[in-house]
Design a protein around this nucleic acid. Structure first.
Lengths: 162, 162
DNA sequence: CGCTTGATGTAATAACATAACGTTTGAGGC
DNA sequence: GCCTCAAACGTTATGTTATTACATCAAGCG
């Protein structure tokens, strides 16, 4: 298999899937969570595609493989994954993506390329963020933040410039 | 009419509606845009409610008043308003809200109270933002940013503390 | 007038998400 | 071992959000 693109850079894709699954296994064991077959498969589907996938896309794959065929099957697996930081929902796209930096506690920020539809997850330092500054001055307590930018990724920009 | 709450602070609500409509009128005239009856009414509905409203909520109000009753009626009006900065879509809520700072060119940030459902729009300086820093280091060109935080507003926090 | 463009209206359908309920399964107490 | 409970899973049905496709109408303009 050829190296694939993740975010906007190339990398060895096979490795990152198995690594991520292994890490998820360990994390769930340590936390006393059940990474059941559906949940694990949903995660691996997101990892294989390595892009934002709609719940129904995941559902289709799951049902092909003998799991339930109704929406709650996908939504429940995705809820579990997002709740425990193994995946994220991209609100702008109503779609889900495997977390690129599991383990670390983070407020992810996403860069969404409107040309090639790649999505990159960037790490942020929550305490320095704009939102936390705003929150501080207004007395608002943040429980969860959504940071998403749409635009053109370096690869597509380069192509467009030609 | 009693002063109402906007964002998390009190203010004179009647005034802000008429002011906002006047400003929108002028802005559209200057820009050669048509602030047609449906569009103007959609804006005033958002202003009156002063909270995030679903497209179908707006549609219901519009159709009661003799405008079309099908979803595109609302979506088209809301698209116009958001496209020209008179309203914003809150992605997390799949809902729309009148812009609190029209005229100014801005990347709005929203603070969403999960208790009382108030939504405050905060101004940001795009150039200092986290996202633009990330974008700069990765070569990504941002066209549009979504900044939304969910949590507890000062008012609800105060009540909860009692 | 005849053409184009943008706004509006409708019907139909697509895409996204949840409620409600029954069954299965596995861990822990007895 | 066996009972009980809670969590996970499956299904049906439904609710919510959004778009496609196409007809009509009015304004601007050669």
């Amino acid at each position: 298999m050829d190296p694939n693109t993740v975010g906007f850079a190339k990398h060895d894709h096979d490795h990152c899937i198995s690594d991520a699954i292994t890490a998820a296994d360990r994390m769930c064991r340590d936390a006393g969570l059940q990474l059941t077959p559906v949940r694990k498969r949903a995660l691996s589907i997101l990892l294989e595609e390595h892009r934002a996938l709609g719940a129904y896309d995941v559902l289709a794959r799951l049902s092909e493989e003998g799991f339930g065929a109704q929406p709650p099957v996908a939504y429940r697996a995705l809820d579990f994954l997002t709740k425990h930081g193994l995946a994220h929902k991209i609100e702008r796209l109503n779609a889900f993506i495997a977390c690129a930096h599991p383990n670390e506690l983070h407020t992810p920020a996403f860069l969404i390329c409107t040309t090639c539809h790649a999505v990159a997850e960037a790490e942020t330092d929550p305490s320095h963020s704009l939102l936390s500054q705003i929150a501080e001055t207004t007395g608002f307590t943040i429980a969860r933040a959504v940071l998403e930018a749409e635009g053109t990724c370096p690869n597509c920009r380069e192509k467009a410039d030609k």
